[in-house]
């Protein structure tokens, strides 16, 4: 038996083990799950170790002289203070750094790429609609306009969803449901192809029933 045969068998047995979970939780799945957790946790630790600690921190500071990165090392070391009961609270500093950075950065990213871009897109689409195009286009763009505005009204928190406002918000939820349905329907086929991919591996590479 050569290496390729062993590796294919190994991959096939692990594949079957995970698939067995669909039937029910069992010993075979539990072993595969345990292997999966151990191997993957180790994989990521090693990857982070070489990619972040070695390549960014060590090479960056020691070999490239990017001393600004020392700040990250100091904050990282503070994280480890969690291991020492009494001064464990120092670990909140790097945590605060990360939360602050995330809040600041993401606020701007979401504002420009989500809010500004989407408002621009809607205005742009609907602007074209009434300037020209056939009836089909007009209806489509009218739907975009109504859908976006009623959808936003659904998310409006300051007013109870009652009366006319409630009715408009209800239309908004219908649009949201169409969006969810569309995503759902769009994804089903690709998910099926994933399973077909694994079955193909078992039948072709492992059992060699299909050529």
């Amino acid at each position: 038996m050569d290496g390729a045969v062993i590796s294919t068998w190994l991959a096939a047995l692990l594949t079957l083990g995970i698939m067995s979970f669909v039937y029910k939780d069992n010993l075979y799945y539990k072993i595969c799950e345990a292997i999966f957790i151990g191997i993957s946790a180790g994989y990521w630790f090693i990857t982070y170790f070489w990619d972040s600690l070695y390549r960014i921190a060590w090479i960056g500071v020691v070999h490239e002289g990017r001393y600004v990165l020392l700040g990250g090392v100091v904050l990282g070391a503070m994280m480890l203070m969690r291991l020492f009961g009494k001064i464990g609270w120092i670990a909140r500093w790097p945590l605060a750094f990360i939360v602050g950075a995330t809040a600041g950065l993401k606020m701007m990213v979401y504002f420009t790429t989500n809010a500004m871009a989407q408002i621009h897109g809607t205005v742009d689409d609907t602007m074209v609609a009434f300037g020209g195009g056939d009836l089909y286009d007009l209806i489509g763009r009218l739907v975009i306009l109504i859908g976006t505005v009623t959808g936003l009204i659904y998310f409006y928190f300051s007013k109870e969803h009652k009366g006319l406002f409630g009715g408009v918000a209800k239309v908004g939820t219908w649009f949201l449901m169409i969006t969810f349905g569309a995503s759902f329907g769009y994804t089903v086929m690709s998910r099926m192809s994933l399973l077909l991919g694994r079955i193909e591996f078992l039948l072709t590479d492992w059992l060699k029933l299909v050529k």
């Binding site: 809040a103 600041g104 209806i139 859908g147 976006t148 998310f155």
Partner: peptide, 29 residues
């Protein structure tokens, strides 16, 4: 459906999300 009602729903969700992120980020900051 993908280009009209779906797009409208996506836009409402995304605009809402960005405003949600702004208000939460400000609460944090």
């Amino acid at each position: 459906i993908m280009n009209a009602p779906n797009l409208a729903g996506q836009r409402a969700i995304m605009i809402g999300i960005s405003l949600g992120v702004i208000s939460m980020s400000l609460r944090l900051l």
